[in-house]
Design a protein around this nucleic acid. Structure first.
Lengths: 205, 205
DNA sequence: GTCTATACATCGATAGAC
DNA sequence: GTCTATCGATGTATAGAC
């Protein structure tokens, strides 16, 4: 597509940091330029406007995150392994990429159109791993009586919600339950276990 | 504390609307003044600064929401009724107050210190209904073998995560699963049922 | 208390030299 | 491609009349 010059990379790295920290409105082109060791004029030379720079940064961050997550899901015929792998990998990815959470929350807090567009794009690029394919897998398990009758969409929503919540509410959780460190390995492993146990017993036929 | 004049109410109403729609940075004092049928100078006369006006609006919105939610939780000795009531009331409150979600997401996306402060305050004002009291209730049910051994904190986090997720991800969910309307009564009732069934079977001894 | 007018700062974007 | 300097627009906050 386009050749990534050294300068462009510097701008994107600085912009990513500032946009995540301050949001689109709170971010200042001056600060991005300073952090990149350059000047404002160059940002506009490379990206025309603040809006375009933001779109570029947000899209690539979200795309990268979702692609890596989808790639990490094990393709298993066994429904127990699939559910276990889905939860474990999702939480692991969130733990490793805490900044993407803030980014997405910021965007959703401002309408979230761009987020929806990017995610839809990512899913349309994948054939075997889409929300609909997950639902089909669960549906099949129901038909084969591997799990009890339930609505696959709601199970999927529940799994995602349980997994992502502690990362969204991290500051609140750590403040109210003093001693809890959401990103600690011990807590993360415990969280994976507790979620899977609840789910697996909850879907038992 | 302070007498709420008609003008002050008008300012707060307009500010609430604009802050929720645009966020703290995106909001303009001009727009708030116009929407209130007043002028910028008056906003500063009543609230000194944009920052203070925002704090006032955010705090009162969040306090109101959480107080109403806590009051709605049934005090039941029966653990099944308690879990069922908690989930049902939480979802119901989220459905009725969609704007608070955006507000909180916006704030968390910007660090969330203020959110943490306000919520901690609300809980400290309540005696019988705090996260710790919920955990104790679950702990007791475990000891009485009403439910299987599990970590009460994680169960609480799971219940909240499952309940709130569809509201957080509403635009994404409705876009990916065309036909789904998160705030539709039918979907909401189905969601309550599916969550409770999963939880209740999942915690069975 | 409420208004108009304006000070003062800041930001995004651009012009123009090198 | 990269810089300095600056424009034009907009925003918060205030001064001062009524």
């Amino acid at each position: 597509m386009e050749y990534n010059t050294e300068t462009e990379k510097k701008i994107l790295a600085a912009a990513t940091e500032v946009f995540i920290q301050k949001g689109k409105d709170g971010a200042r082109m001056d600060e991005i330029a300073r952090k990149a060791g350059l000047n404002k004029a160059l940002l506009h030379y490379y990206f025309r406007s603040k809006e375009r720079l933001y779109s570029h940064v947000f899209s690539s961050e979200v795309r990268c995150f979702f692609h890596a997550f989808l790639d990490s899901i094990p393709i298993s015929e066994n429904i127990e392994n699939f559910l276990h792998g889905f939860i474990g990998n999702y939480i692991e990815h969130l733990r490793k990429n805490p900044r993407i959470i803030r980014f997405i929350l910021w965007e959703i807090g401002h309408g979230g159109q761009m987020f929806v567009e990017v995610v839809s794009e990512v899913f349309s690029e994948s054939e075997s791993k889409t929300p609909h394919s997950f639902i089909k897998k669960i549906e099949q398990a129901v038909q084969e009586k591997k799990i009890r009758p339930l609505d696959p969409l709601h199970l999927l929503l529940s799994m995602i919600g349980m997994s992502i919540f502690v990362f969204i509410a991290q500051p609140l959780v750590e403040s109210i339950f003093s001693g809890v460190q959401v990103t600690d390995s011990a807590f993360i492993e415990k969280r994976k276990d507790e979620i899977f146990q609840l789910i697996w017993q909850g879907v038992h036929p």
